[in-house]
Amino acid sequence: MAATQNPQNNGKQVQPADLAVRKSDPNQLSNGKSAPLEKAPGADLSKLKTHNGFPVLTMAAFQALYSCQSHPGEVQTFDFRGYVEDETGKLMYMDVLATNGLRGGIHVGIDGTTSYDDISSK
């Protein structure tokens, strides 16, 4: 992916880590470091639409990745900072870490919240 200058990210170049799915490695969990990053399934970062240097996903793709689990019993984390486009073309900024497949189907989502409306609409 060609790195894009991002005026809203302190001028840093956008990294593919803005959109990633990690398969958890038990050996990595103990020290808080990320397991190797993988591209999100179906997301070709070189062709991904961007806005202000952040990736843009459709709402359907975002929802699928938010709750994705490739195989039963496999723990995966979807790590995303970017925009989601709804059916009307409106862009919403999302900052999420979502882990699926824990202990029989527990889901953990940590969402960056931009207003109290976001909390009440959950």
């Binding site: 889901h107 953990v108 960056g112 931009t114 207003s115």
Partner: peptide, 19 residues
């Protein structure tokens, strides 16, 4: 439109299935 600078706080949502 909301931007990265608008993220004010983080909230943890954990879903526990019935089983």
């Amino acid at each position: 439109m909301r931007s990265p600078n608008d993220v004010g706080e983080y909230v943890v949502y954990i879903t526990v299935p019935p089983e």
